[in-house]
């Protein structure tokens, strides 16, 4: 194992995360190589330095504040209105309403089809109200024009 590979493994060796076989190889190299031995020593110093950084004490009554916040959160959840589900769930009442609506629509359609003038039919001329000065649509096949000549005069 060369110096580059050994130094790349020093961090894992320090953490006891190196496979046993590699531990033996790296340790053998460290015993023989001054440069890698110095890198190992530097890693030791680094960890001593990390250990020298003190941690400030936990803020006063942090636990109390957290528990209070937790109680509030649970209360909010209990009092909050329930959210509607993104996907509708099966509800018998809704199904009944849907079936009833469909039946009514079908009945309406059948009644419309049996009538002499269907739902989409153009209303006949005699059905026009008196205030319909002109029918909205000209009946098909009727040519509207001005008659001229002797036939018109007669």
């Amino acid at each position: 194992m060369n110096c580059e590979k050994v130094q790349a493994r020093l961090s894992a060796l320090w953490d006891h995360e190196l496979p046993e076989e590699q531990v033996r190889q790296v340790r053998e190299h460290l015993d023989a190589c001054g440069a890698c031995g110095a890198a190992w020593e530097a890693l030791n110093r680094l960890h001593r330095a990390l250990g020298s950084d003190p941690l400030p004490p936990i803020p006063m009554d942090l636990a109390g504040r957290i528990v209070l916040a937790g109680r509030r959160r649970l209360q909010e959840k209990e009092t909050a209105p329930r959210r509607r589900l993104a996907f509708p769930v099966f509800r018998p009442a809704l199904v009944f309403r849907a079936v009833a609506l469909a039946a009514l629509l079908a009945l309406g359609y059948l009644m419309g089809a049996s009538s002499p003038h269907g739902a989409a039919a153009v209303p006949p001329a005699d059905a026009l109200e008196v205030f319909d000065l002109l029918p909205s649509q000209t009946p098909a096949g009727v040519i509207v024009g001005v008659m001229e000549g002797p036939e018109a005069r007669s």
Binding site: A35, C36, E41, A42, L43, R45, R48
Partner: peptide
């Protein structure tokens, strides 16, 4: 971290071994 500490001169770190 070693490089940063050596730059800052903290902890009496030896210069990094260059490979």
């Amino acid at each position: 971290l070693r490089e940063a500490m050596e730059k800052a001169g903290g902890g009496g770190f030896l210069p990094l071994t260059r490979l």
